[in-house]
Amino acid sequence: MKILQERIKHTKFGESLIIETAIRIMVPFIQLFGLYVIVHGHYSPGGGFQGGVILGASFILIGLGYDFKTSLSRMQEKTNIILGNLGALLYTGVAILCALMGGLFLDYSALDKLIPMGPIEWRSFGIFLVEVGVGLAVMSIMVSLFWDLCSGGDLDEGL
């Protein structure tokens, strides 16, 4: 009780213990759900765009519930940039790999020469690779939009 009172005295206005605990419990499940939406996009509503937005929303939730510094410490700016570039490059890389393997640009069935598992199965798996790329890019851009817009570009003080 004593520790709790000390803690409440030191927190700034607007930071609540209840909200912080709820977010700490919820964020891993939100990220797990985002990964599920990306990976399970073949069999249920979902896909790269939706799952990427959910993954980005988990980091935005940390930034809203705690403060800006915590959000930055959970996801470094450099990591974020690398993930975004990796996502966009994964999409174009798969497309160019298809062209290099002798098919058309973005014709995933040409990747059958790389790992033989049937051209139709490769069309299904190629969509999965592409969706992962889209999800990474969308997550990174969402988090970066929130950081830049809420701190005015300084990335030190925010909401």
């Binding site: 896909g47 966009a88 497309a95 069309r123 190629g126 969509i127 790329g133 890019a137």
Partner: peptide
């Protein structure tokens, strides 16, 4: 394509070029 979700199949395969430039 062996993808049961037609929206994903059209988005990722038939209109893959569109989605690439969307990204």
């Amino acid at each position: 394509t062996h993808v049961p979700n037609i929206v994903t199949a059209v988005l990722g395969d038939y209109r893959g070029y569109d989605t690439m430039f969307e990204t």
